[in-house]
Design a protein around this nucleic acid. Structure first.
Lengths: 185, 185
DNA sequence: ACCTGAACACCGTTCAAGT
DNA sequence: ACCTGAACACCGTTCAAGT
């Protein structure tokens, strides 16, 4: 990835693929077929596979974008919110963002998705912000002293499972229960 | 279901199917094919589908068994453990039981699986025991006052997501974080 | 370089033929 | 009643032919 620039038609196709995929996956979840993504993007399946070797790779590319979007949100929260409430606000906002996007949900739950090209960088940037928020909460005495970014990921994965697999359940309640586990005893 | 008794050969086939499926799904997860289950059970796929209209139905039948097994464990915990620790013990033991069984994991995460014939009864029995344990913990002042069985299911679904989707992550840590959310503030 | 779509592989599910 | 397995449908992925 990120070798020489794409030919202009290829570049345009790539954009259309990403847009089509984002729409379809966010709306109707992961079970949308590659064929349908290609159709909506106005390309053949072969083109799709030329850019993304597997369906999961396509999903991951989308998720990287969401990840970066949300890192920006997290940075804003870190800047604006007082140390006592920053982590709780972050968790709640993150949950809202995940709730509306089926692809993002999948990504939050699995480690595998995070192994694809370059995701590590995005993750690192995100982890840095979250860690800072956790640290300030700990300094303020409201966040569990041994909490780290991995724990944050674990907890968000749990909340996401409720959203994704238990449509009837109240995921906001799941968020509040999870927050109880993050607080200093 | 539970109409007239099966012919003896059919009964034997059913047993072999359940045993084969339990083994395969627990070991290698849900992606094991119906064909392979049939083969291991020594029957044709058609026979498999005669007993279970879909793969999910088969999974659910297995899960009902696990559910009943675990209700027995929960009952024992309720009887033996002091009110202050019973819920935590239950959660930890439940997590252990889920960890070793891929089919059980799937079931803990999804509501859909719980809609199949008769599962409601098993669930009710399980819910009764869990609710009692929660109630005694609340009376002892160590469990969050507004906690109910739905919350228990939500929390276990979250822990299960970590087991299922994040093989690298430490699910015991997820359990401990979750327990923090169940305690009285 | 890049695009296309027919073809392949795999798997869940069905059903005609058999006992 | 029950059993079998070939056949069908669907979908992820590949690749020969074309620009």
């Amino acid at each position: 990835m990120s070798s020489r620039p794409l030919r202009s038609d290829a570049r345009r196709n790539l954009e259309r693929i990403l847009e089509a995929a984002q729409h379809l996956f966010a709306d109707r979840g992961t079970q949308v077929s590659m064929e349908e993504v290609a159709q909506r993007a106005g390309v053949g399946v072969g083109t799709l596979y030329r850019r993304f070797p597997t369906k999961e790779a396509l999903l991951t590319a989308l998720v990287r974008e969401r990840f970066r979007d949300f890192t920006a949100v997290a940075t804003a929260v870190a800047a604006e919110e007082v140390a006592e409430h920053a982590l709780a606000t972050l968790v709640r906002r993150h949950a809202e963002a995940i709730a509306v996007d089926g692809a993002f949900q999948l990504a939050m739950m699995s480690t595998d998705s995070f192994r694809w090209e370059g995701v590590e960088d995005d993750k690192r940037a995100f982890a840095a912000v979250v860690s800072e928020v956790i640290g300030r909460g700990q300094a303020a005495g409201v966040v569990r002293g041994d909490l780290d970014f991995e724990d944050y990921a674990t907890v968000m994965a749990g909340v996401t499972a409720t959203m994704h697999f238990r449509p009837g359940a109240d995921w906001r309640r799941a968020v509040e229960l999870a927050l109880g586990g993050l607080r200093a005893p």
